[in-house]
Amino acid sequence: MNPLLLWFHKLGSPPYFYRLAGRLLPWLWALALAGLALGLYGGLFVAPRDYQQGDAFRIIFVHVPCAWMSLFVYFFMAANGFIALVWRIKLSETLAMAAAPIGAAFTFICLATGSIWGKPMWGTWWTWDARLTSELVLLFLYLGVIGLYHAIEDRRQAARAAAFLALIGIVNLPIVHFSVNWWNTLHQGSTVKLFGPSLIDARMLWPLLTMAVATKFLFAASLLSRARVDLLELESGKDWVRQIALAEEPRA
């Protein structure tokens, strides 16, 4: 067998994945925290004040990376859900379900910070703008996946049902975006453009990109630590989990 394929098969085995993820996790957390610190420093101290929005524009450094992540995580979840449904790989089920709460968290942050940003800029906490509405629907999709996963008793069946829902959602998302766009132009014309074609200052751009990369690492770290716990729960009858449980017995 080709070594890459062999490695892939090994990765699918829970104990191997558990150990590998455990070795990667400290690095991922360190990279994520360093990236966040650098990005926040750049966003709060280095980036110059926006000539139109003043300092309120600094919300962009948390808002936009979270908006990107909310979609990225959904695609990740749906791709893993697809793999789980077609090839029935246990690891993919676990990864897809571990990604859902993280994606919901990013979507929530995106909505909350967006609304906080909207108040001083547009004078309102919420507008039925196409992107905002799509993001809200995305949050509902995440909550639906999480809710379905926790409502079904059997863990693997629950993961497969929720993965299926995630796949339906991925078909639904572009339709929602298109329909909301159409609806929006019908009702209120063009909305406020945050950036438009204007060029963004390099001193604003690098913190933004740093935050985007840092949130990717944060997602990876959170995903692996969630997947590790889920595997422990899923395989709690197996010997390797028993050994871990006994090794970590608190000294009384």
């Binding site: 639906g144 809710g147 379905l148 639904n172 298109f178 329909s179 909301v180």
Partner: peptide
Amino acid sequence: LLALLVLPLYVPVLI
């Protein structure tokens, strides 16, 4: 739960 699952899918139809 059913309402939560169905709602995002109903949005485009309603629109």
